[in-house]
Design a protein around this nucleic acid. Structure first.
Length: 495
RNA sequence: GCCCCCAUCGUCUAGGGGAUAGGACACCGCCCUUUCACGGCGGCGACAGGGGUUCAAAUCCCCUUGGGGGCACCA
């Protein structure tokens, strides 16, 4: 085989978010480039005048950066083959279109949308494959002038040869199509902007892309593109069509399935490394029984033979598991830093930047308590609220079933007195206090532990009580116990 | 309708002529335990169907079925 340096690309169209499926395609290309020490190109396919927005471009770039998928050439980076925005490359598409026209491999078509629709409908009735009827294939100069006089703006269509078109897919082996069944598709729209199937080829060829890795929804586009490569005498790249990602109902992943956009996962508090690890496993596997890999480790092992051929269903449950694993294993300082924006957003802290060392330490300690209990940072906000607010919210169910019981105020009272007297506030002393109160009242530890937890956190579940008390501090612990006793009394009086 | 791709537990997958078909998530049970988690141990659970080829098929071939994608002046 040629030892050309591998060049791959990710070419999203900026018409919305960075989709999970797109991100996975980007990731596979990135991994492939890194594995073979190749070049990863990012190109923006913004030829859809109506739907493309600059904002969407930014969302995509941001998403890529968040995932850690850095590109070697593309927006913000430049490169030998710039520009990397298709709308800045119009002259190139026009140039090659002229050549195709001159070589009689493409032709002007003046048919209106109505005429086209009519023809398609007729074919549909006759159960034929839908293709252009070549009405304009051999128009005379007079015909063209007449149409132009009518005000018709022509498109340029590619003339598809009647022959077998085959390519060797790196994942699937040989795939063949009958050119006779393909339609003479439009390569240049009447406004002078190229269509996808045409622009892709010009750019991939000019940018010297060696391997085109993309979703298998592009398989049927491939023969059309090959016709263009051949018509222009370009080298045809290798193709690898990777399986798609589906929603739980096995339909194409979309908003209906919950979060389909990469940025939504960031908002929900997933760790990018975990997301990357998970989506890498959608269609790829190391061949071993290991699941947790750093992206570098995946790149090292990433080869085409380990990619499966069938679509994969995106599972939130499994993503949660990956995220929990990262939550448990990543350095606490790193996680603490990542948590700050969420605390800010929830108004648990004033400012992310000028945190006092003490406050930072406090957050870190709280996070340590929650680390093994949360699936993402959004959950942290819900589960750990009582560490950050003055007035805690006692869940009604917890109040009714645990606090508002016979004897509880007395127990809390006794504990509060014992705790107030502690000189050295640590886990050992607080546990001792609780145990002593329990034995003097002749009750089991649980009978005192459970109401205390609710009094301090408002919840029935959470970290071990003694570590919770230590992090919360003596002052707050005592105050909350008193407050709880009051509340129980209030509830009694109301009856 | 036409064309193309795909098919192992519910899900992600390993395996690719001879295996008790392996792992992970989820689920269930037990242990640990002050709750919830974590962790440990165990369990449930799959080769879509039918034909070939072969001494032997989950594995190779064909058909059927099922799923997915495409057939735009969208990408």
């Amino acid at each position: 085989m040629e030892n050309k340096k591998i060049r791959v690309r990710f070419a999203p169209s900026p018409t919305g978010m960075l989709h999970i499926g797109g991100a996975r395609t980007a990731l596979f290309n990135w991994l492939y480039a890194r594995h073979y020490n190749g070049t990863f190109v990012l190109r923006i396919e913004d030829t859809d005048q109506v739907r493309s927005t600059e904002e969407a471009v930014n969302v995509i770039l941001e998403g890529m950066k968040w995932l850690g998928l850095d590109w070697d050439e593309g927006p913000g980076k430049g490169g030998e083959y710039s520009p990397y925005y298709q709308m800045q490359r119009l002259h190139l598409y026009q140039k090659y279109a002229k050549q195709l026209l001159k070589d009689k491999k493409a032709y002007y078509c003046y048919c209106t949308r109505e005429e086209l629709a009519e023809s398609r409908e007729k074919q549909s009735k006759e159960n034929k494959s839908l293709k252009y009827d070549r009405h304009c294939l051999s128009l005379s100069e007079e015909d063209k002038k007449r149409y132009e006089a009518e005000g018709r703006k022509p498109v340029i269509r590619l003339k598809i040869p009647t022959k077998e078109i085959a390519f060797n897919d790196l994942l699937r082996g040989e795939v063949t199509f009958d050119g006779g069944l393909l339609s003479d598709f439009v390569i240049m729209k009447s406004d002078g902007i190229p269509t996808y199937n045409y622009a892709v080829v010009i750019d991939d060829a000019l940018m010297k892309i060696t391997d085109v890795m993309r979703g298998d929804d592009h398989i049927s586009n491939t023969p059309k593109q090959i016709v263009i490569y051949e018509a222009l005498g370009f080298d045809v790249p290798k193709f690898a069509h990777i399986p798609m990602i589906m929603g739980e109902d096995h339909a194409k992943l979309s908003k209906r399935h919950g979060a389909a956009s990469v940025m939504e996962y960031r908002k929900m508090g997933y760790i990018p490394e975990a997301l990357v690890n998970y989506i890498a496993h959608l269609g790829w596997s190391s061949g071993s029984n290991r699941e947790i890999f750093s992206v570098e480790e995946i790149a090292k092992e990433f080869t085409l033979d380990k990619i499966s051929k069938h679509a994969a269903v995106f599972s939130m449950e499994k993503l949660n598991w990956f995220n929990s694993e990262y939550l448990k294993k990543m350095p606490i300082d790193f996680l603490t830093k990542m948590l700050l924006p969420f605390l800010k957003e929830a108004n648990y802290i004033e400012n992310e930047e000028n945190l006092s060392p003490a406050k930072n330490e406090y957050i870190k300690e709280v996070l340590k308590l929650m680390q093994g209990r949360i699936k993402n940072f959004s959950q942290f906000i819900d589960y750990a609220d009582y560490f950050f607010v003055d007035k805690i919210n006692i869940e009604p169910q917890a109040f009714g079933s645990v606090l508002n019981k016979e004897g509880v105020p007395g127990i809390l009272q006794a504990l509060e007195e014992k705790l107030s007297a502690i000189k050295c506030w640590d886990e050992e002393s607080s546990e001792n206090a609780v145990r002593k109160v329990a034995s003097s009242l002749q009750i089991k530890g649980g009978q005192i532990i459970h109401p205390t937890r609710v009094a301090l956190s408002g919840k029935k579940v959470g970290p071990g009580l003694f570590e919770l008390m230590v992090v919360l501090g003596q002052d707050k612990t005592v105050k909350r116990l008193k407050k709880a006793i009051e509340k129980i009394k209030e509830a009694k009086n109301r009856k």
